[in-house]
């Protein structure tokens, strides 16, 4: 939960700064006057289009450690955030090749070398190689699917038990109908006033600071 001091239950950084007795420092060790570590400044947007436009502004402002949150993938958001194509496909390719090689070893090793049992009088020669293909195909698919699944989780740093952004009570709507943008305090360009103003200019609502811990 955000340590809400205002009646609206939201502690904006501007309000914070006004009440501050000691200046807020830059970087990851920034704290609110009440002593909470700051994770990020976050804003809500009323639609996917507004979030998309805001993301372009934040990208152009040169931020690196920031993210947008939406209930569904927004088409074109990767470019709006300045992200390239996901390299997950390379992992899947390696997985698929591993599967193929596993099948080749699994089939030819025992059938040809270790236990060359003749079944149904079928000989062992190159003409019978195509009969080994179906299982090679299946294991290629199986390994590729496992790599896609686990690469998706590992590359996203999941599973993860908790994340500071969940400290914001409005954030529960990110999986329903809310569109959010958060700029982390760790970003070298982060500055309490300018970042806040940027979010205001892009039409961000409910701008708040999100604490690192509960």
């Amino acid at each position: 939960m955000v340590a809400g001091v205002s009646p609206a239950g939201e502690e904006t950084l501007a309000a914070d700064t006004a009440a501050a007795t000691k200046p807020i420092r830059k970087g990851a060790r920034m704290r609110t006057p009440s002593g909470h570590k700051v994770y990020a400044i976050a804003a809500e947007y009323s639609s996917a289009s507004e979030l998309y436009e805001a993301a372009k502004r934040v990208r152009d402002a040169g931020f690196k450690r920031w993210d947008v949150f939406s209930p569904f993938p927004i088409h074109g958001m990767d470019e709006a955030m300045g992200l390239g194509k996901s390299w997950l496909s390379a992992v899947v390719l390696i997985g698929g090749i591993t599967g193929l090689l596993t099948a080749v070893t699994l089939e030819f090793g025992p059938s040809w070398l270790i236990y060359p049992v003749i079944v149904h009088g079928k000989p062992f020669n190159w003409a019978t190689v195509p009969e080994f293909f179906p299982i090679m195909f299946e294991l290629t698919v199986l390994f590729a699917a496992f790599s896609a699944f686990f690469a998706n989780l590992i590359m996203n740093g999941l599973p993860r038990w908790h994340h500071p952004i969940f400290n914001w009570d409005r954030f529960a709507r990110a999986t329903n109908d809310g569109f959010f943008l958060a700029i982390e305090a760790r970003d070298p360009r982060f500055s309490e006033m300018e970042t806040h103003d940027l979010l205001v200019e892009t039409g961000g609502l409910h701008i708040t600071i999100v604490h690192e811990e509960d």
Partner: peptide, 26 residues
């Protein structure tokens, strides 16, 4: 698994989904 709808996640997620669709087809 701690999903939070992050676009940095959706990027990999959509690629994984596309590839799973691609390999499920054959």
């Amino acid at each position: 698994v701690g999903w939070r709808g992050s676009n940095r996640h959706w990027r990999h997620y959509e690629m994984a989904y596309l590839l799973l669709a691609g390999i499920s087809t054959p």
